[in-house]
Every structure is written in structure tokens, then in C-alpha cells.
């Protein structure tokens, strides 16, 4: 009998036990640093962490021949308070809703001027991706422009004071969806999965990831950078400010989102799911909701078990849809070629 070894639930912990070629970029003291320390992100910011991992991996994958396009949002604001800049890579910010189109323009320019060894990575928050940026993004996908677009999803407009976005989950309390009167917070809509929308464009590569598994995130960036055409990575990044979670809990909250089934982690190529990260120890959605004050109203007094049950239903649907629980014979064994083998230990 074997059990999977995980100390804090992420492969990052096992870095020293891994062969050097399997180690995360971030484990090396020699790593590049796309975004330097000293920026103005909040403590515990999931987006700052994800952006560093994504850009360092992309930069390494492109041997430093890389240009970054950034949408308006927290990441842009906290990294470039004039006259300072935290960016060590060429970086362009234009507007909130146009990062994909700007990146398409950069990519076209590099191709037209014979410098297409330089790769293009665009990044935006969920607002700049699923809401105001969606038109441009869909165009970039449909034309299969040579851009890797990364969405750092913190499920709301945090930069402007935590308003609801199209990526805000149902029942979350935000500055525009307060649970007052009979309201349960953000209404239960149909939801809007940008990864699935990206897949509908049948682009070469779509992946989701979280900051709970940086090695996985890094591997997906490396995979994406090994390809050309339109590629999309959607990263869940907890926001202590907007979610009301402890700043030290960012990684744990992200992991609970995965383990509850609320945030499926998977890869897709040309519109078909090719791999999904199975849940090793499923948790009820309540475990994910409770550490976040944006869901407090669901547990106050008699609570709203009906709403929690509705959220559990959504998690269960994800688990069924992506096959997140059972051993997945359908998953190709090479679905995540960059992943390290799970650490296994013989138990006596």
C-alpha cells in the first residue's frame, strides 16, 4: 500500500527531495525576477505571487526574449507607481479592456519586423478578462494570435474597492452585492467560465491553475510557452482584502477551492480536456467558505444551509464534469508532461 506524501499539500515543499530538473524555477536562488520586491501589493496577495511565478517561468522558457502586456488593475497599479517600476521585463500597459488586442498588435509587429523570436505574454485580472476585456480576448483567440494570455482571477474588482465582477461566485458579499434584507450576496446566475469559453474557440492550449500549486502553474506556463498561437491560463488568486481571508491563508484558501471542487484545475488542447488534477482529499464547500468573511452571512445565526447546499451542488457538478474525484482512467498518463511524479512512500 502506498500513500501520497505531501507536507503542506504542494509540491513546493518537496523541492529539495526532487531531482534538480524537476525542481520549481522559484526554488532556485539563481532564478530571474520578472517583478522585483518593493512593489505595493497587499500582504498575502495571490496575484503578485502568481504573476512572479508566471512571468519568471515564461521568461525562462523564452530565454528572456519576452514582452509583457498588462491590463489596468491591481497588478498594474501596485507595480508601477511612477517613477518606480517593479518590472524587470519589457512591460506595456494601455487600458483596462484591451490587453488582448494590444498583445495581438505587439505580436503582429514583432512578426512583421522579423523579431518573432520575442514572445508575448498578456496578463489581466478577472475584470479585464471575463468582463470588459472579453471582446478583445475572443478576437485574439479566434484569430489564433501568438499570445499567451494569463488571467489572475480574484473574483472581483478589488482595485476599485471589491465590487462584483462576472467572475464573482454566487453568495459572495462584495461592495455591490451586500447580503442585506433577503439578499444572500451575489445572485446565483449561470456563471461564466472563461476557460470553457476559451475552449469553445478551440485554441491550442487552455489551462487552469491556482497559487496553491506553484509547480503545476509553472509547468503549465512552460507547456504554453512551448506552443504557438493563442493560449490561455486562468489562475485562481485569493485576495485577502476582497475575500476577507487571513493574509497568511492565501495558499490554503486556494487549495480549499480546488479540494472542494469549486475550482477545477485542468488542461485542454484544441477544445478538449486532456487532463484534470484529481482531488486527493475532498472537503465540503463549507471548509472553503468559512475562512472568508465574504461568506460570513451564510453561517451567521441559523445560517443559510440552503445556500451552502446550492454551492455544494455546483462543486459536485464540477467534480462530475471534470472527473475530479475517482481515479481517472480516461486521463492520458502524459496529460501533464511537466509534472513531477507524485511523491510516494512505502508504508510499512
Amino acid at each position: 500500500m502506498t500513500t501520497t506524501l505531501y507536507q503542506i499539500g504542494t509540491f513546493a515543499a518537496g523541492n529539495r527531495l526532487l531531482a534538480p530538473e524537476q525542481r520549481a524555477v522559484q526554488s532556485s536562488t539563481e532564478r530571474g525576477n520578472a517583478i522585483t520586491s518593493g512593489h505595493r501589493a497587499c500582504r498575502g496577495c495571490g496575484e503578485a505571487l502568481a504573476a512572479r511565478v508566471v512571468l519568471d517561468a515564461a521568461s525562462r522558457a523564452s530565454s528572456g526574449r519576452m514582452v509583457t502586456v498588462n491590463a489596468t488593475g491591481c497588478l498594474e497599479v501596485f507595480s508601477t507607481p511612477y517613477p518606480e517600476s517593479a518590472w524587470q521585463v519589457p512591460w506595456l500597459h494601455s487600458l483596462f479592456g484591451n490587453a488582448a488586442a494590444v498583445a495581438s498588435g505587439v505580436s503582429a509587429a514583432l512578426r512583421a519586423t522579423g523579431r518573432d523570436d520575442i514572445r508575448v505574454v498578456a496578463q489581466a485580472g478577472d475584470g479585464g478578462t471575463v468582463d470588459i476585456g472579453m471582446g478583445c480576448l475572443s478576437g485574439m483567440f479566434e484569430r489564433n494570435d501568438d499570445v499567451l494570455f494569463v488571467c489572475y482571477d480574484n473574483q472581483g474588482y478589488m482595485n476599485t474597492g471589491v465590487q462584483r465582477s462576472g467572475a464573482t461566485p454566487p453568495a459572495a458579499s462584495t461592495a455591490t452585492t451586500r447580503p442585506v434584507g433577503t439578499s444572500v450576496g451575489n445572485a446565483f446566475g449561470t456563471g461564466k467560465s472563461l476557460p470553457l469559453i476559451a475552449m469553445a474557440h478551440e485554441i491550442p492550449y487552455v489551462a487552469t491553475a491556482t497559487v496553491a500549486d506553484l509547480h503545476d502553474l509553472e509547468a503549465k506556463v512552460v507547456t504554453a510557452m512551448s506552443m504557438h498561437g493563442a493560449r490561455y491560463i486562468h489562475v485562481l488568486v485569493p485576495c485577502p482584502l476582497g475575500w476577507g481571508s487571513a493574509s497568511a491563508e492565501t495558499i490554503r484558501v486556494a487549495r480549499l477551492a480546488v479540494q472542494s471542487g469549486l475550482f477545477p484545475v485542468f488542461e485542454a488542447r484544441e477544445g478538449a480536456v486532456t487532463a484534470a488534477m484529481t482531488i486527493r482529499a475532498q472537503v465540503p464547500v463549507e471548509d472553503y467558505l468559512r475562512p472568508q468573511t465574504r461568506f460570513d452571512h451564510l453561517f451567521r445565526g441559523d445560517g443559510r444551509p440552503d445556500v451552502v447546499a446550492a454551492l455544494q451542488e455546483r462543486a459536485d457538478r464540477n467534480i462530475a464534469r471534470f472527473g475530479l474525484l475517482a481515479e481517472q482512467p480516461d486521463n492520458p498518463p502524459d496529460g501533464r508532461p511537466q509534472d513531477p511524479a507524485p511523491l510516494e512512500k512505502e508504508t510499512p
Binding site: 514582452v67 494601455s94 484591451n98 498588435g105 505587439v106
Partner: peptide
């Protein structure tokens, strides 16, 4: 909006 944005990206990339 996409047209002008792509021109912005292209111009900033030196084209």
C-alpha cells in the same frame, strides 16, 4: 476599440 488597441501594441513594439 480592438483596432486602436492593436495599433497601440504594434507601435509600442516598434512597428
Amino acid at each position: 476599440f480592438g483596432a486602436m488597441s492593436a495599433c497601440i501594441g504594434a507601435s509600442a513594439a516598434g512597428a
